[in-house]
């Protein structure tokens, strides 16, 4: 019970803080409440299948297979696959991190993990379709063309910035979950 309260302490703290704000500014409080409901709906809609898929991935896909496709030595194929899987994703960015953790467990390389996260955040296909209609093809296409190399460069830069030990520690944590 206490462990539970401890885990949710940040959440409870923010909740109390928002309750306090609502007392002084009811309009803001109502706005926050409405948007929270909207976001919870989105979470309940998109998040369950993502987690079920990652559970299935964890159980069924052997590590060797994942390593072959996206692990050490997967080269360009691994990079393209990471981009593709990230772009095909649905849902908010915070859904990408648990998937990335399972990928780490399965031996996907660090740059490929980061490319996957980058693609999930910026080149998601459903979002790009929306962008085409809202901001026009020149805008969306230019952004896409610069974002794809950008994501890859940032991924390798981050690998250089982080030490080998730190990366290993992040993988260790993912394996423990």
């Amino acid at each position: 019970m206490t462990a539970m309260v401890k885990r949710y302490s940040s959440f409870l703290l923010v909740l109390v803080m928002l309750g306090g704000i609502s007392l002084f500014n009811q309009e803001l409080g109502k706005g926050v409440f409405d948007i929270t409901i909207m976001q919870l709906k989105e979470m309940l809609l998109v998040i369950p299948p993502i987690f079920v898929l990652l559970g299935l991935l964890d159980v069924w896909v052997p590590k060797q297979t994942m390593v072959k496709f996206m692990g050490k030595g997967s080269g360009l194929k691994g990079i393209l696959l990471s981009l593709l899987i990230g772009s095909a994703a649905a849902g908010p960015l915070y859904g990408a991190f648990p998937v990335a953790a399972v990928f780490m467990k399965k031996g996907v390389t660090f740059p490929n993990i980061l490319i996957f996260i980058g693609a999930w955040s910026t080149t998601k296909i459903p979002m790009i379709l929306f962008e085409f209609s809202a901001l026009g093809a020149p805008f969306a296409l230019t952004r896409l063309l610069i974002d794809i190399p950008g994501i890859i460069i940032i991924a390798f830069l981050l690998q250089k910035l982080m030490g080998r030990d730190e990366i290993e520690a992040i993988y260790e944590k993912a394996r423990a979950q």
Binding site: I47, L54, G55, D58, V59, W60, Y94, P98
Partner: peptide, 14 residues
Amino acid sequence: ALKKAWKAFENILP
């Protein structure tokens, strides 16, 4: 797999 899915979800829920 479902157990793992739930564990992963509950883990990050806070």
